[in-house]
Amino acid sequence: MTTRVGVITFPGTLDDRDAATAIALGGGEAVPLWHKDKDLNGVDAIVLPGGFSYGDYLRAGALASVSPIMDAVVDSAKEGMPVLGICNGFQMLCETGLLPGALTRNENLNFICRPELITITNTKTSWTNFFQPNTELLIPIKNGEGCYQISDEGLKNLEAKGLVVARYNNNPNGSKNDIAAICNEAGNVVGIMPHPEHAVDGLVGAGVDGLGFFWSIAGVTV
């Protein structure tokens, strides 16, 4: 059966359509959801797409994280539903507390928009199980607040439990331990700063290295 993946649109979301396209290319069915919805329309998984929800007012992702639909997202995630937060979606996952840490202003204050090499370091999550360990991927980043911060104790915990899902090969923004993506302990919730949904079509992107995330959720195997 086709995996139905909800894509939530918030005011200021930019990448919901790219996410839907990527889900379809990966073999899933994208289901549009709206931030004021109260239920998830029976989807099997959720993507929180990138963009500037609420114009990044207050803090990036902070106001979206208290949107009406997020109660259902948080409850479902705690019950094991796969959730992928991309860029602004990663910021939302941190703001809800589903993932530890926070994304802050890039160390050099630049908005960075270019493909970056990352290495997949956890292939057990719902969103990375397609990959072999230590796979290198070329995935675009486009963020001004992508600097991952966490307490020393929290960082130790992430590393000890293998919850770092991907690292930058060349840290572009000051993120602790080159972290580009992390997951929760169950591995169903993943936050990633680079944009796999922008790397699914060789004609308009930096290649197709992002497809593996969407193959993972659709249950595609090699």
């Binding site: 207050l58 840490g101 966490i150």
Partner: peptide, 8 residues
């Protein structure tokens, strides 16, 4: 819980 993020 909203105006500040206790992590940062």
């Amino acid at each position: 819980n909203v105006l500040s993020n206790p992590i940062i």
